[in-house]
Computed example of a mutant assay.
Amino acid sequence: MWTPKTEAPSSISVAPDDPDGRYSITDLTGFIADPDQFYDFAYRDTLRAMVAAVIETESPLRTDILCQRVARAHGWLRTGGKIRERIDMHLRDYDRTQESSGEFIWKIGAVADFHPYRPPHGDEARRAIPDIPLAEISAVVRANPDLLEEPDPARELARMLGVERLAAGSRARLDKAIARGRGDGASVSIAPSMPDVE
């Protein structure tokens, strides 16, 4: 069982564009969420505003996590295909990257190979390694070059991110971030946006 820390080690730089440099969950309670109107044309502005709020607060973040946030605001525990399809309609203008753990949504023009790491604002904002964009993990590697001299850089990187037990899939992701951080990995590419639906 992994136990992420909520404090950022002093050797990790945090995102300057966030008020406190920490990853926070978007508070959507200010919206009047109406599950009965979710699929109505007239409700599209509310959905668009919810999507924009999540992206403003949490991006880059995985698309499925964004969809979960909006679904939970409507009281749904599951995020089925129809719900996701409705939310995806409002993601056309945002940048995307495809990673091993899924698609990440970014603010327009913000995609980069390196993005300052955002430690969790609290326990509820903890992110598993697959939920952290490679750009953030790679930035930790780049900011801590001595990490590469460790016998097991991936394990040390996991500890820096607050993860004690490292699963095989997470290790592969960290290895990829380490390669990018040292300059061996490929640059990030923007995934094509969804085609317009008429």
Rank of each mutant, 00 (worst) to 15 (best):
Ala42Cys: 04
Ile32Gln: 15
Phe38Asn: 05
Thr57Lys: 10
Ile32Met: 12
Ala112Tyr: 06
Leu91Met: 03
Thr29Val: 04
Phe31Ala: 07
Asp27Thr: 11
Trp106Cys: 00
Asp40Pro: 09
Leu61Trp: 03
Ala53Lys: 06
Phe104Asn: 01
Trp76Thr: 04
His121Thr: 07
Val54Tyr: 01
Glu124Ala: 13
Ile108His: 14
Arg72Glu: 09
Thr97Ala: 09
Ala125Met: 10
Ala49Phe: 01
Pro116Trp: 08
Ser59Thr: 07
His115Leu: 06
Ile87Met: 01
Gly81His: 15
Thr97Trp: 04
Asp123Met: 00
Asp45Trp: 08
Thr79Gln: 12
Leu61Tyr: 06
Gly109Leu: 01
Ala112Glu: 06
Gln68Lys: 14
Val111Phe: 07
Arg48Ile: 00
Leu28Lys: 07
Arg44Glu: 08
Glu56Tyr: 11
Pro120Val: 00
Glu124Pro: 11
Trp106Lys: 00
Glu85His: 15
Ser24Ala: 15
Asp93Gln: 14
Ile108Asn: 12
Ile55Lys: 02
Ile55Ser: 01
Ser101Asp: 13
Thr63Leu: 04
Phe41Gln: 14
Val54Ile: 06
Met89Ala: 10
Ser100Gln: 12
His74Gln: 05
Phe38Trp: 08
Arg92Gly: 10
Arg92Glu: 03
Pro116Met: 04
Glu58Ser: 07
Pro119Ser: 05
Asp123Arg: 11
Asp88Cys: 10
Arg118His: 06
His74Leu: 01
Val111Asn: 01
Pro60Trp: 00
Ile108Lys: 15
Gly80Asn: 13
Ala125Pro: 11
Ile65His: 14
Val54Phe: 04
Ser100Asp: 12
Lys82Thr: 14
Thr57Ser: 12
Glu99Asp: 05
Arg62Cys: 02
Ala71Pro: 02
Thr26Glu: 09
Ile83Cys: 01
Val54Cys: 11
Ala53His: 02
Arg118Val: 00
Gly30Asn: 12
Met89Ile: 02
Arg86Asn: 13
Cys67Phe: 04
Gly30Trp: 09
Pro60Met: 00
Glu85Met: 14
Gly122Asn: 15
Leu47Val: 13
Tyr23Gln: 10
Gly75Thr: 12
Ala53Gly: 05
Arg72Asn: 13
Gly102Ala: 05
Leu28Trp: 08
Leu77Pro: 13
Glu99Trp: 02
Glu58Gln: 10
Ser101Cys: 10
Asp27Gln: 09
Glu99Leu: 00
Glu99Tyr: 07
Asp113His: 08
Gly80Arg: 13
Asp93Lys: 15
Ala71Tyr: 03
Tyr117Arg: 01
Thr97Gly: 09
Ile108Gln: 15
Tyr39Met: 07
Thr63Glu: 08
Ala125Val: 09
Val70Pro: 04
Glu124Arg: 14
Leu66Thr: 06
Leu77Gln: 15
Thr57Trp: 03
Asp36Met: 08
Gln68Asn: 14
Glu85Gln: 15
His115Gln: 09
Lys107Asn: 13
Ala33Asn: 05
Gly80Ala: 09
Asp113Asn: 15
Glu99Val: 04
